[in-house]
Structures are given as C-alpha cells and as structure tokens.
C-alpha cells in the first residue's frame, strides 16, 4: 500500500497536475489566439468597461442572488471559497507545493481548513439536491453534471476523513489513496469539462467581443454555399 501511496503522491500527482495545467493552458492560448490575433483591431470597439466590470461583479456575485435561484446561487458561490482556499493553502498542501513547485505559499490553520472543508461539502450536497429536486434543473442535467459534483466531493470528503481518524471508519492509507486518486482524476477531468471555467470564466464573460463580427465573412459564407447568385 505504501508503494501505491508513494506512486499516487509522486509521479502520478506530477503527471496529472501537469496534464491539467497544459490542458488549461491550451484553452487560454486558443482563446487569446482567436480573440487577440484573429479579431485584432476590431477589439478596439468592444465594450471593455462593461466586460471588466461584469467579470469583477461575477467574481463576487452578491447582486446576482436573484429570486428563484438564491439558494442555488448562494451554495454555488460559497462552495468556491473552500474549493479555492483549501486545495491551495491547507498546510499539508503547502508542503506539497513547496516540494513540487518550489513555491513558498502561506497556509491557513487546520481549524479554518476543517470548517471550510465541511462547508464546501455541505454546499456540494445542496447543489446535488438542487439538481435532483428542482424540476427545471433536473430537466437540464445529464450524467456528467452529477458526476462532476461527486468527483469534487470525493477529495474533500476523503481528505477530511483521513485527517480526522476518529470520524474515519476506514483504514488511513485507504482513505489517503482515495484522496490522492480522486484529486488526480479531477485534475484530468478539469480541462475537458465545465470545470475548465477556472480559466474560461474570464473568456466567456467577454461575449461582448464576439459581437465584433468579421467584415466580409457573411459574403464568403454565402459565396461558398450559393455561389455568386442572389441570396437575400
């Protein structure tokens, strides 16, 4: 088991983490290429002020807790606090980052991390229940929507149990292995699923830029499909 653990927190972690970073980097590069290079000078006309304000507002979307979705929105927003802080700043993780990346990050106390973890787990359960019990959300949900919630839930739950033996009904190393493997599976999933909003969030919000249509493109589409005939 020890060998498995070493493998999971060593080479497998390095591989999956790098995989995630490269996957996200690909999204960023493609978006910048398309927006920055292909649209080029047309971006000068874009509503930049609105785009930047929108992005900042959505980073703390308090004013968007609208009637009808307030419960879901609150759980969704609040879960992000733990989702960002615990994986990055938990003491054990800080050690890991230092070992792998040489980064010397500040850490949050164990107590704070515990509260954040439990809070995140509670929020994820609320989000899951919303999908199951709210008709309009169920209508739009597919297997992947549930799977992603479970995949995010697993590393948090297993990490909490592994660090609190008195609540843990399983062997410590089993729980740690579950923690590593589930986190690594999540790393792999991130670039391919909606979790990629980690980086795409900043690009989706710029839909204002996509209204800067390409001059002449309509003509080319029409020419390709109909030739030079009348096309009105």
């Amino acid at each position: 088991m020890e060998q498995w653990l070493d493998f999971a927190k060593g080479p497998l972690f390095a591989f999956t983490f790098l995989f995630m970073i490269l996957g996200l980097f690909r999204h960023v590069v493609l978006q910048i290429y398309y927006l920055g290079i292909r649209k080029g000078r047309r971006l000068r006309n874009a509503p930049w002020r609105k785009i930047i304000l929108d992005t900042l507002t959505w980073a703390v979307p308090v004013k968007h807790f609208i009637p009808g979705t307030a419960f879901f929105s609150s759980a969704s927003f609040l879960s992000h606090i733990g989702l960002i802080l615990v994986p990055v700043f938990l003491v054990d993780h800080v050690v890991l980052w230092e070992g792998f990346l040489g980064l010397n990050l500040p850490s949050i106390g164990k107590g704070v991390a515990d509260v954040l973890t439990l809070f995140t787990i509670a929020c994820l359960i609320v989000l899951f229940c919303c999908r199951v019990f709210v008709g309009r959300q169920r209508a739009m949900s597919g297997p992947m929507d549930y799977l992603i919630l479970i995949m995010v839930f697993l590393p948090f739950a297993s990490g909490f149990l592994a660090s609190h033996p008195k609540f843990n009904p399983f062997a410590w190393d089993t729980m740690m292995l579950t923690h590593f493997l589930s986190a690594e599976a999540l790393f792999v999933l991130i670039p391919f699923t909606k979790l990629s909003h980690i980086v795409l969030f900043f690009f989706d919000r710029v839909s204002g830029l996509h209204w800067q249509l390409r001059p002449g493109a309509g003509d080319k589409v029409a020419d390709a499909l109909f030739g030079k005939e009348a096309r009105v």
Binding site: K39, F72, S76, D145, H197, L200, R214
Partner: peptide, 18 residues
C-alpha cells in the same frame, strides 16, 4: 467567421445551472 472559439468555450464551460 469567428464563432468557433466562442462555441469551443461555451461547449466546455456551460454549467447548465438553470
């Protein structure tokens, strides 16, 4: 046209949160 990156991005990150 330039719709491709937009569709790529929406396809990946659309949360279907309703």
């Amino acid at each position: 046209t330039d719709y491709k990156p937009l569709l790529d991005s929406y396809c990946t990150s659309n949360a279907k949160c309703n």
